[in-house]
Simulated scan of single mutants.
Amino acid sequence: MSSTRMIKANGIDLFIREAGQGPLVVLCHGWPELSYSWRHQIPAIAAAGFHVVAPDMRGYGQSAAPPDVAAYSIFDLVGDIVGLVKALGETRATVIGHDWGAPVAWHAALFRPDIFTAVAGLSVPPPFRGRGRPLDLLRQNGVTNFYWQYFQTPGVAEAEFEHDVARTMRVVLGGRGLADPSAAMFVPEGKGFLAHATGEEPLPAWLSEADLAHFTEAFRKSGFRGGLNWYRNLDRNWELTAPWQDAQIDQPSLFIAGAKDAVITGLIGAKRINELERVLPNLTRKLIIEGAGHWVQQERPDEVNAALIRFLRESSAA
């Protein structure tokens, strides 16, 4: 059984779920999610002989949500995980992330190889630091309605998502009734992020009404600003990571994604999937799960758990 508690790390309070004993494994969730997103992984990884810890990330759930947009840079986010390892009394850990948690995991391994001895990313490939700020590049390519851009102005996306939190979570997590999932990444002119869906589509088999209620209740309490502030640091993160241009992550690594995940099927994502080894010279496996979408560890927990546990055993033995 997993337990929960609050822990001080990097100067803020983090809510964590944890289970098991053994080498430390930290699980970093994405947007708009919670430590609860790892509910299928925590018991399985603990049973395999590891101490597994999943925080509500900064700005989410019961963890602290600093008011300043600048408090959500990649340095702050990685700093939380470094601080968490220390607060748990450990000096080494494997870090695993999904969605926005994947860049946190990749950068944790990049910035602090002395602490993070192995790294796995789900859905989002490792950092390829491009030739310019991400939002500038979108504009230069004539893109004005990508969801990153819609999320930039404080208050706009918050108002849309908080108007009816239950519908928001049903649409975002449950799928938006789209034949082409990548269309969900573009916001129609004058409309909102949720404009594609009615919110009445049936839930997918992997997401129960009870699961949905858990996410809904948490976001009713916290609001959406904390998680959206991560997106408001995209250009700043590009500037901050200049010293790591073309750097590689040398630790053992694993990449997992759903074959139907719009993050890896789009133009940029598909290219990055084919070039993982450029950044990950010690990539042990690239697992693309047929039929799975973006929420891969919730959609296909058995396959994800098997791959993660095999990776954890191999990398900890090494």
Results as ranks from 00 to 15, higher is better:
Ser2Trp: 13
Thr4Glu: 13
Thr4Phe: 07
Ile7Lys: 05
Ala9Arg: 04
Ile12Val: 14
Phe15Glu: 04
Leu24Val: 09
Val26Leu: 15
Leu34Ile: 08
Ser37Tyr: 00
Ser37Leu: 06
Trp38Asn: 00
His40Lys: 09
Gln41Phe: 07
Ile42Tyr: 02
Pro43Met: 11
Pro43Asp: 10
Ile45Cys: 09
Ala54Pro: 09
Pro55Gly: 11
Met57Asn: 13
Arg58Glu: 06
Arg58Asp: 09
Ala64Phe: 00
Asp68Thr: 03
Val69Leu: 10
Ile74Gln: 08
Leu77Asn: 10
Asp80Gly: 07
Ile81Asn: 03
Val85Glu: 05
Ala87Lys: 10
Glu90Gln: 15
Ala93Gly: 11
Ala93Tyr: 06
Ala93Glu: 12
Ala93His: 09
Asp99Met: 10
His107Thr: 15
Ala108Cys: 11
Phe111Tyr: 12
Arg112Val: 02
Phe116Thr: 10
Thr117Gln: 10
Ala120Gly: 12
Ser123Arg: 01
Ser123His: 01
Ser123Met: 10
Arg129Gly: 00
Gly130Leu: 14
Gly130Ala: 15
Arg131Ala: 12
Arg133Pro: 02
Leu135Pro: 08
Asp136Cys: 03
Leu138Thr: 04
Arg139Ser: 13
Arg139Cys: 08
Asn141Ile: 00
Val143Ser: 13
Thr144Gly: 13
Tyr147Thr: 06
Trp148Phe: 15
Gln152Met: 13
Val156Asn: 04
Ala157Pro: 00
Ala157Met: 13
Ala157Gly: 12
Glu158Ile: 02
Asp164Thr: 06
Val165Tyr: 02
Val172Cys: 08
Leu173Gly: 03
Gly174Thr: 11
Gly174Phe: 13
Ala179His: 13
Ala179Gly: 03
Ala179Ile: 09
Met185Pro: 02
Met185Arg: 05
Phe186Asn: 11
Pro188Phe: 10
Gly190Arg: 08
Gly192Ala: 05
Gly192Tyr: 02
Ala197Thr: 12
Trp206Ala: 05
Leu207Ser: 05
Leu207Val: 09
Ala210Tyr: 05
Ala210Cys: 01
Asp211Gln: 02
Ala213Gly: 06
Ala213Phe: 07
Arg220Phe: 04
Lys221Gly: 03
Lys221Tyr: 01
Phe224Met: 02
Arg225Thr: 13
Asn229Thr: 00
Trp230Lys: 00
Arg232Thr: 03
Asn233Cys: 12
Leu240Asp: 13
Ala247Lys: 14
Gln248Pro: 08
Ile249Glu: 00
Gln251Asn: 08
Ser253Ile: 08
Ala262Asn: 12
Ile264Tyr: 07
Gly269Thr: 07
Lys271Thr: 14
Val279Gly: 00
Val279Lys: 06
Leu280Trp: 08
Asn282Ala: 15
Leu283Ala: 03
Leu283Cys: 05
Thr284His: 08
Ile289His: 03
Glu290Gln: 15
Trp295Gln: 10
Val296Trp: 05
Asp302Arg: 12
Asn305Trp: 09
Ala306Asp: 09
Ala307Ser: 14
Leu308Thr: 02
Arg310Lys: 14
Leu312Thr: 02
Arg313Thr: 06
Arg313Lys: 15
Ser316Ile: 11
Ala317Asn: 04
Ala317Glu: 08
